[in-house]
Design a protein around this nucleic acid. Sequence first.
DNA 1: AACGTTAGCCATACTTTGTACGATGAGTCA
DNA 2: TGACTCATCGTACAAAGTATGGCTAACGTT
Lengths: 224, 224
Amino acid sequence: MASTGGRSRAGLDRDRIIDGAVELADDIGLDPLTIRRLADHLGVRPMSLYHYVTSKDDIVDGMVGRVFDEIERPDPTAPWRDAIADRARSLRAALRRHPWAIPIMESRRTPGADILDHHEAMLATWIGTGFPLPIIAHGIAVVDAFVYGFALQEAALPFGDDASGDLTEASEQIVVPLSPERYPSLLRFTAEHVMQPGYDFADSFEAGLDFVLDGVERSAARTG
Amino acid sequence: MASTGGRSRAGLDRDRIIDGAVELADDIGLDPLTIRRLADHLGVRPMSLYHYVTSKDDIVDGMVGRVFDEIERPDPTAPWRDAIADRARSLRAALRRHPWAIPIMESRRTPGADILDHHEAMLATWIGTGFPLPIIAHGIAVVDAFVYGFALQEAALPFGDDASGDLTEASEQIVVPLSPERYPSLLRFTAEHVMQPGYDFADSFEAGLDFVLDGVERSAARTG
DNA sequence: AACGTTAGCCATACTTTGTACGATGAGTCA
DNA sequence: TGACTCATCGTACAAAGTATGGCTAACGTT
């Protein structure tokens, strides 16, 4: 009786499975996410999951969909540049929360509504600029390439959460002990910039985003 | 006796193992690359590999090193913009040949000489510009982010080898059957641009590279 | 109230993975 | 010849995904 409204004991559910999988992948990464560990995390036995999903790949598809749903659609009322920039920031933030998703976001062969809706909103905003389609195509490709690539690099940073503190530590261990004859530039760059207080790799994100959007804007002005 | 110069029967070798692994990964991808399949490919039994490598991870490290070695170092005699652009093109070409490498290029925790030498050459070129270090940091981060991200997207394209032909086919199967009410922009963009003759996703690479390098150049001019 | 039906959960088992351990056999030197 | 070295391999085990089919509890029907 009561609130479960059904006949289930553990209250399993496709949504609960995907949610649990995302949680667990955030914790331990994608490769160590196994069916058995996921089942443990959900308080059930491994084979129970297969009543709601058809395969592990099906779960991963669902996980990617969740990430896409976390990305803000561009605001159709805002100036295009703000809308695109905010959406890029939102994409980066989502990829930071879910770094395991970065390499697989665009490689799913069966795009669900989450993905299609997202791309439709993006395209609507871009088309609203009135730019020629070839420039829009470049804009989309280049902005997304930059954001995905930046997220990939951020994810590769040691303990990518708090940025600078850990990076200094890692630099000390890896770069500083190197031979000064062989790696003069690497050592100088590390000592005089990376290990300086206030350095934050993340600052390059806004810089790069500006470069890219400037480029689109200028090439549109040249053509249009 | 004769040419093998030693006591081995199959002529196994760490280099031969890594080379074979790269070949095989180029064919079938990284996940399906198993120790057993690699041993088959080399004409050897699985356990023989472990006399030259300490683990599968060790092999993967070596594979990443191979890819780094394929990337042209920037030409120290060329103008910086050409040197950086050529190196970016070379990186993209290597990642196109070895798409399995994209997500792991920057995430190895023990950088070998291949990786360090490459970064040293890059930094030397950048420092040669005389730009302030913060701008150099942005330049490196943004160019690499763009190239890695672009390669990631290219790798996600269906049958990413010959570019346009296959993309048109995939668009027909995935995008064209969609509801025109729900996905008007997606459909218009696909019909009027992606499926037009002459469209090639790869064209966005040079465009984006220009955007990024323009951005660095202009911000250096502003500061310096 | 009794019963068959079905939905949700799980135990077992098979295949494939990485790799630890120790055996095998070819070559070298005394 | 015999002892030694070392590249190669056979066997085996833990952990992965998942096919197959069994158990149990809740429901609709009479």
